[in-house]
Design a protein around this nucleic acid. Structure first.
Lengths: 204, 204
DNA sequence: ACGAAAATCGGAACGTGTTCCAATTCCGGA
DNA sequence: TCCGGAATTGGAACACGTTCCGATTTTCGT
C-alpha cells in the first residue's frame, strides 16, 4: 500500500513531494509537447514516459490513463484561462458582447494549437465514468468563465437564469469544438455558433 | 480492385447485392446486440464478426472502423426516430412544448438502452475526420428532428433564426448526453437541460 | 454450364494502451 | 549514519483494434 500516493492532498513538503511535483509537471509538459504535433495519436504513453524521462509505470502512477492525462492537461489549461481573465476582464458594454469577446479570445488560442485542442477535445468526448470528476471540473471552469464574462468587470453571484444560460453556452462551446476537431466544420464555426447563441440568449 | 464495393450507391440488385445487404444488416444487428450489454467495450470487432457470422475482414470491408460501425448505427437510429416522428408529430400548442415533448420521448428511448447510447455517444465524441460525413449526417438529422418539432404538425421551411435555435438545441442535446454517459450527470439532466434551453430560446 | 472476377474466409501479425513484477534507488526517521 | 518502506525503473506480457494475405466460395456474363 502506498501511504503517500501522489494524488492525496497531504503535503509533507519534503524533497519527495517536491521531486514528485516536478515529475508530474514533466509528464504534463511532455504530453503537451507531443500533442502539439501529431495530436491525440502522437501522445503515446511510451513516448510520454521517454520525453518526461520517467518510466512508463511512473506515468501511470500519476495518471491512471491516457484519457486522464489529457483531461488533466485540459483542466489546467482552462484553469489558466480563467485566472488570466480574472485580471483582464472584457470591457464591452453588453453581457452578450463580453461573452463573445472572451470566447473569441479563447478560441483564438485554441486555434493556434489545433492538434493540442483536438487531443483534449477528443479525450473529453470519450471520457468514462472513472474520469467524471475531471470532466465535471472542466465543465465547471468553462461555465465559470462564461458567468464571469456576463458580469464583468464587477463579479457578482449568478442568478439561476444566468447560470442556465452559461451552461447552455458551455455546451454549445464544447459541441462546436467537437465539430471543429472532427472536421465537420471549420474553426470559424465555433465563434459563429457562440456568437449566435450569446445573442439569442443574452439579447442584443 | 473492387468494382462493386458495398459503399457505392449503384444498385445492381443481383443476388450479390441482396446478400451483401443482409450481411451488412447482420453486422449492425450484432453490434447493437453486443452494445446492449457491456456498451462500447463489449463491442469487440472479433465478437461482432462472430455474432454476425462473417469473417473479421468482412466487417472491415463494410465498416472501416469500430467508430464508423457505431456511428452508422447511430445514424440509422436517429433516422428511424425522424421517420417515426413524421407520422406521429407532437400535438402541443407551443413550439417549446413540442420540442420538449419530442426530445423527452427520444430520451426515454435512449434511457432504456443506456449501454447502447453510451457506445454511440462515445463514438461520436471520438470521431476523426475520416468520419466527418456520418457525424455531419447525424447532426443534420438531429437538427431536422428539432426544426420539425418547432413547426409540427404543419411542416414548413425553417427561418434562419429557427435553424440557429435548432442547432443550439442539438448541441445542448449532444453535450447533455455526453454528460450523462460520462457519469457527470444523471439521465434526467438531459431532459432538464433541453427543457430549459427550449424555453429560453423559444419563449413560453 | 464454364471461367474470370469479386467477395469471403481463416487466421497470423502488428501497434499501442495497460498491467504486472522483480530489482534498484530514494527519502525520512531513529 | 543506517534502515525500512515507498517510489522508481526497465521491461515483459496481455488485450483489442487494425492490417494483410493465401485459399476458398460465390456471382455473373457468355
Amino acid at each position: 500500500m502506498s501511504a503517500a500516493d501522489p494524488l492525496s492532498a497531504s503535503a509533507p513538503d519534503g524533497a519527495l513531494a517536491r521531486s514528485q511535483a516536478a515529475r508530474r509537471r514533466r509528464v504534463l509538459d511532455a504530453t503537451l509537447r507531443l500533442a502539439a504535433d501529431g495530436g491525440f495519436d502522437a501522445v503515446q504513453m511510451r513516448d510520454v514516459a521517454a520525453a518526461a524521462d520517467v518510466a512508463l509505470g511512473t506515468v501511470y502512477r500519476y495518471f491512471a490513463s491516457k484519457e486522464r492525462l489529457l483531461l488533466e492537461a485540459m483542466a489546467e489549461q482552462q484553469s489558466d484561462l480563467r485566472a488570466y481573465l480574472e485580471h483582464h476582464p472584457p470591457q464591452q458594454e453588453t453581457a452578450a458582447g463580453r461573452v463573445i469577446a472572451v470566447l473569441r479570445r479563447a478560441n483564438r488560442s485554441l486555434r493556434e494549437h489545433p492538434d493540442v485542442t483536438a487531443a483534449m477535445v477528443r479525450s473529453f468526448g470519450t471520457a468514462q465514468s472513472e474520469n467524471a470528476d475531471i470532466v465535471r471540473r472542466v465543465t465547471e471552469i468553462m461555465t465559470a468563465i462564461i458567468t464571469s464574462a456576463i458580469h464583468a468587470p464587477r463579479p457578482r453571484p449568478a442568478t439561476e437564469r444566468e447560470f442556465r444560460i452559461a451552461r447552455i453556452l458551455m455546451q454549445v462551446w464544447l459541441s462546436s469544438l467537437n465539430g471543429w476537431v472532427c472536421g465537420v466544420d471549420g474553426p470559424e464555426r465555433v465563434d459563429d455558433d457562440l456568437e449566435a447563441a450569446a445573442r439569442l440568449l443574452l439579447g442584443e
